[in-house]
Nucleic acid binder design. Sequence first.
DNA 1: CCTATCACCTGCAGGC
DNA 2: TGCCTGCAGGTGATAG
Length: 277
Amino acid sequence: MPELPEVETVVRTLEKKLGHCTIESVEVRWPKIIDTPDIKTFCDRLKGQTIQSYGRIGKYLMFDLGDQMLIAHMRMEGKFYVQKAEEPYDHKHVHLLIRMRDGFELRYHDTRKFGRFALYDKREDPYAYPALKHVGLDAFDERLTPTYLYQQMHKRRITLKQALLDQQIMAGVGNIYADEICFALRMHPATKIWHLRKKDYETMLTETRRILSGAARAGGTTIRSYTSSLGVDGRFQLELNVHAREGEPCPICQGMVKKITLATRGTYYCPACQRKR
DNA sequence: CCTATCACCTGCAGGC
DNA sequence: TGCCTGCAGGTGATAG
C-alpha cells in the first residue's frame, strides 16, 4: 500500500500516538518478517528501548532507539495499529506485537506477509544500513537535484515510468504516483528515458515533489475500499488524475483514460495528453 | 554491469 | 454457489 506520502503519514501518526514510549516486550508471530537479527536477538534487544524519534527514507520507516535503529517496510499491505493491550485484534494477520510500558501495543498487520523489519546498531549515515542497500536518495533529500536525476537516468535503457519507480535512483515513488507524475509531465509512461532533455529533469523533480507533498498533506491515498478508524495506515482520500481511472474522462481533455501493462505493473494514462517522445 | 522475470503471500473481483 | 484466473500501491534474488 504505501508510497512516500503514506509512509510519511504513518510516521507522523505513530509519532503522535506513541511518542517516546518504552518497549516492554516483543512478540513475533511470523518469523519471516524479521530480516535481521535472528528472532530471539531481535526481541531481546528491543526490550527496554525507548523510541527517541520517528522518520523515514523513501518508503522505509526508521525508528530511532538511540543506540539502535529499527527499520521497517510495509511493502504492499502492511499497516500499523496502536491499541490498548487488552483491545482485541485480528490474530490471523497481525505478525508482530510490540508491547509498551504504558499499556499500549504497536501491532503490525499484513495480510500478504510481505513487510520486513530489521534492527541494527546505530550508524551515523542513515543510508548505510544493509536494509537500504538498494535505496537511493529520498525524493525530498536536498542532495537530489535535476542534474543528479539526469546523470542517474538518461543512459538507462528503460522507460520513464520504470525510471520513476527505480528506488535506487530516487526513493519514494510507487505505482500510483509514478502514473500521476507522468500525467503531470504530459508524457507517455512508456517514453524511453533517454529521449528526455536536461530541462525535463527540472520539471520531473518539481512535479514529483509537488505531487508527493500534496498527497502527504492529504494524509496519503486510497484506492481499494478500506475502513479503519483505529488503523495507522495512511489510507485516506485524494483525487487522482489518471491512476485507477480506466475509462474515465481525462481531467484536461475529457478523453478516455487508458490502462496498459508496463514492466508488469498496471499503468494508467491519457493517450491524448501524454505523448511518447 | 544492465534489464527482465520470478518468488514471496493472501484475498478479492469477475467470468463461466 | 463454486471454481478458476488474474490482479493488487513492493522489492530481493536470479536468470539471461
